[in-house]
């Protein structure tokens, strides 16, 4: 019994599936694309350090939401002792008003879909 055709077809299908990211990137031609960082901000220093914010901003925001919505506590004491109002619209977006540049670029790049904007109004800075 000669199954050469079937075997070769199977191997080709396997290789195509495994190397999907390679040829998809080649066909798409955007593999080298990395979004430009554009940290738009009025203040020099965010609520916490840049390193902390980059790694854990999602957890911080989630904690803020739980604290405000469920416990009614609105004051956040940062690690350096400064106090902030826990508010996405008033505290965060006050500086980072451009959602398209500040939020979406990275989120789209790594396919993260935060649920912030299910409730919050998209900031003005986003309008073209």
């Amino acid at each position: 019994m000669n199954n050469r055709g079937m075997i070769i077809a199977g191997i080709i299908i396997f290789l195509c599936m495994i190397t999907f990211p390679i040829w998809y990137n080649v066909v798409g031609g955007k593999a080298a694309y990395t979004p430009e960082f554009k940290i738009v901000s009025k203040e020099k220093q965010c609520v916490e350090s840049t390193k902390y914010m980059r790694a854990k901003h999602m957890q911080l925001l989630n904690d803020w939401r739980n604290s405000v919505v469920r416990d009614g506590k609105r004051t956040y004491t940062a690690l350096d002792g400064k106090k902030y109002d826990m508010s996405l619209s008033n505290t965060c977006l006050n500086c980072h008003s451009n959602k398209a540049d500040f939020c979406d670029k990275c989120h789209n790049y790594v396919e993260v879909t935060p649920t912030c904007w299910n409730c919050h109004v998209v900031p003005e800075g986003n309008k073209l």
Binding site: Y24, A31, M58, Y109, T113
Partner: peptide, 24 residues
């Protein structure tokens, strides 16, 4: 691995994280 990200990735991802427990 890919850029732009194919549509089905988001589909599976949102199904997988359906319960939205915690962040991430």
């Amino acid at each position: 691995f890919t850029e732009p990200i194919p549509f089905f990735v988001n589909l599976f991802e949102s199904m997988d994280g359906l319960f939205e427990i915690g962040v991430p």
